[in-house]
Write a protein that binds this DNA or RNA. Structure first.
Lengths: 231, 231
DNA sequence: ACTCGAAACTGGTCTGACCAAAAGCCTAGG
DNA sequence: CCTAGGCTTTTGGTCAGACCAGTTTCGAGT
């Protein structure tokens, strides 16, 4: 079962990618460092990294750092969501909310179960920052909201959820933002329920109550959807 | 439009393969000769040849000559072999199951709510067909199972769920299939719970009971996951 | 004619060097 | 304060030449 050194290394690197030890967007150690720490030549490292790139798992730029790619990205280039045409479509916005409801519910669930203490601490800090800042533009509020949810997703230790969340939030930001705009228009102001819901999610995760976290996160999104349906 | 030297060479070699200048079984010139005749270093040649091998176009044996493979071969591997490392990874398999649990739960939920009568009829027909056929290979059972779930997803009238399901099932079929194989190995036979669970999903959707459909579909997947964790 | 081993291939790895692109840093000028 | 500009470091891309390890080839000795 002995194979090439470079194949060994390739396998090893893939392992890191599939288990989530190397998250999408994370930087790989440089070829020279790998070469030194693994006691193989840089040529061998290059061979392995080259394969990884060819298979679409990492992105390597001359002079820049090599970083892990999102596993789902190559398969997510559909005509969907490109542009705000879809972002303004109420039916599409509704669907985005429904997916968010399940996605963020699951993310919160696994985060409550698996987040490291450091991640919980960072999440707590972000939450408090979010609670303080008040007078901001709608756009900033939306971004802040997304950052909070993205942090939860990243703490889930669930490669697929992390990958999908990344793609989803970036691709469909327009639709998500559009929902907020429309809510403000219909409702007159930022719905007062949001604050309490964020608090509930935060609290459930901090107490590592997975089920509560899931339903709180899910409810948070469905609450927004109900606001939208009043039209 | 200038790219890497090795990429240039890779492209060039592919040309030879696709135009038939290099027929299946033919020997490639050695890396040293290429390096000399093209005035590039052997490292560059190796990079290109390595890619070719990774893509399945040539076969290279230590000490022996490198020869062109049958062009159709990579496409056959595509159906099953793409990313074998990924499909065999237990941790990844578990994550795939978890995503399936939420994805298929939601799909069943919306299908129960929104499927047209025609879609329900087609689903019913597929279900009955599935119940009849018994003696089949594991592979065929897996495909059948996936077809059933894909039909549910397609009946959900939910663009995002449909799109994601399609990508997910085709892309990660290996991991899904790997789960089945592993279950069979651990368990000795096809778990008897599956049949009843399919029935429960089918029944809930037919009665348009969305909540029941969701939990039945979700439970179906989680049941499989539990089987896997017995190791 | 056959066998077998040396020699001449092949690909796999290593070393250390240089180039070019990107990133980081640090200073001078707003 | 901080931003724009250059300088240095770090990164990936390529190169040369060497050695190791399998394969193949082919001729000498039987």
């Amino acid at each position: 079962m002995k194979q090439n050194l470079s194949d060994d290394l390739l396998q090893q690197l893939k392992e890191c990618l599939f288990t989530g030890a190397l998250l999408p967007g994370a930087e790989l150690t440089s070829q020279r460092r790998m070469s030194a720490s693994l006691k193989v030549s840089r040529a061998t490292v290059r061979e392995a990294v080259g394969q990884l790139e060819a298979e679409g798992y990492v992105e390597v730029r001359h002079g820049g750092k090599t970083r892990a790619k999102n596993l789902l990205e190559p398969h997510f280039n559909m005509s969907l969501g490109e542009g705000k045409a879809l972002g303004d479509n109420p039916e599409f916005q509704r669907q985005v909310l429904e997916v968010r409801a399940m996605l963020e519910g699951e993310a919160a669930f696994y985060t409550a179960q698996r987040a490291t203490d450091d991640q919980l601490k960072a999440l707590d800090a972000e939450y408090r920052k979010m609670q303080q800042r008040q007078q901001e533009t709608t756009l900033e509020k939306a971004k802040e909201d997304l950052r909070f949810h993205m942090m939860i997703a990243e703490s889930s230790h669930h490669l697929l959820i992390i990958s999908f969340s990344q793609l989803f939030y970036t691709r469909f930001f327009n639709a998500i933002y559009g929902v907020l705009i429309r809510t403000l228009k219909t409702n007159g102001r930022y719905p007062e329920g949001i604050r309490a819901q964020h608090s509930a999610i935060h609290q459930a995760i901090m107490q590592r109550d997975a089920e509560a976290a899931r339903s709180a996160a899910s409810e948070h999104i469905l609450y927004t959807r109900r606001h939208l349906e009043k039209d």
